[in-house]
């Protein structure tokens, strides 16, 4: 993998992020009404003073290109604007809430890949067997269940029938000052239901995908060779076949990132998980546009970064692509 390829990929990523900034800028201006009023949000009647300050800050009295330049300049300096509801910079609001979201999204991603691939591999051993049928049915069901409803059903189940997992928030109030390890375990305990809820949809997709991918690979010559050499079934499945079947799974995993963020938005709302999805939802209800736009920018930038990492990692993982 050449340096020029990496640089080109990075440059293109920067371009995409710049595009998101321009889109954000345009959206606020395209919305009906005075942009200053839109930015101030419906915070119970913004005073003329505040509106003037917004017009000043965003250069709303100047030509559109100057406005755009000011906006881009601000974003480049890490200034995503001021939330008039919280009276805090948007970047700080996001920084406060990014941890829980990363924790939730990564846990769900890892959980769904591990379980999904495992199910898919098991199913691929007998393409017409009961395990395969189960994976197919499960995948169709997983795809069709609304993620927020899964969360609600789990909350009802675990609140009344088997109360073994906490159903909302990220930690217990009484353990807030406990030692680090206890707090960590408490957070993990709170993470179980939201992470599982978010994982279900993708778990089903990974199971189906890895089953198909494995079936492709298992028909190839080198697997026949490995069998002829007398390799154990487990070694063939998990060592020879899975390595080759993993590439499409990796690609999809990278592409799912944006969807995971959308899913996290719903899951965080259902479970009162204090992440940026919850922040976006609350801000939309309050019409706190600087915050909404900040989250949209931040989430899109995260997707761009995730895509670049996926792209680079599968080129690195596949020797055939490494040379290009």
């Amino acid at each position: 993998m050449s340096l020029s390829f990496i640089l080109r990929r990075l440059g293109y990523g920067v371009l995409l992020i710049f595009g998101v900034v321009v889109l954000n800028f345009l959206l606020i201006r395209l919305a009906p009404g005075d942009p200053a009023v839109v930015i101030a949000g419906e915070m119970g009647g913004a005073t003329e003073e505040i509106l003037d300050r917004i017009r000043e800050d965003y250069g709303l009295n100047q030509p559109l290109t100057t406005q755009l330049a000011i906006y881009v300049g601000n974003v480049l300096q890490g200034d995503l604007g001021q939330s008039f509801f919280f009276n805090q910079p948007v970047s700080r609001l996001i920084a406060q809430r990014i941890g829980p979201t990363i924790l939730l999204v990564l846990t769900a991603q890892v959980l769904s890949i591990l379980l999904g691939v495992f199910l898919g591999v098991i199913a691929s051993r007998k393409p017409n067997g009961p395990a395969s049928a189960f994976v197919s049915i499960f995948a169709t069901i997983g795809y069709a269940v609304p993620v927020f409803w899964t969360g609600i059903m789990l909350i009802i189940l675990f609140a009344s029938v088997v109360p073994i997992f906490p159903i909302e928030g990220i930690q217990s109030v009484r353990l807030r000052d406990a030692p680090l390890l206890v707090r960590g375990l408490d957070i993990a305990h709170h993470l179980v239901l939201p992470a599982f809820t978010l994982a279900v949809v993708y778990l089903a997709q990974y199971a189906r995908l890895s089953r198909a991918s494995m079936l492709d690979v298992l028909g190839s010559d080198y697997i026949r060779t490995a069998r002829a050499k007398g390799g154990s079934e487990r070694a063939i499945l998990f060592k020879h076949a899975l390595r080759n079947a993993a590439l499409p799974i990796l690609t999809i995993a990278g592409m799912q990132f944006g969807n995971l963020i959308s899913g996290a938005l719903l899951v965080e709302t259902v479970f009162n998980w204090p992440g940026i999805g919850r922040l976006a939802f609350d801000s939309i209800l309050r019409r706190d546009y600087p915050t909404i736009m900040g989250v949209l920018f931040f989430a899109s930038a995260a997707v761009v970064v995730a895509n670049i990492l996926t792209d680079l990692s599968y080129r690195w993982a596949d020797p055939r692509l490494r040379e290009q």
Binding site: L23, L27, G258, I261, S262, L265, V304
Partner: peptide
């Protein structure tokens, strides 16, 4: 494809 779909639709 970069825009998180639900968030963008919400906006």
């Amino acid at each position: 494809q970069v825009l998180p779909a639900l968030l963008f639709a919400m906006v």
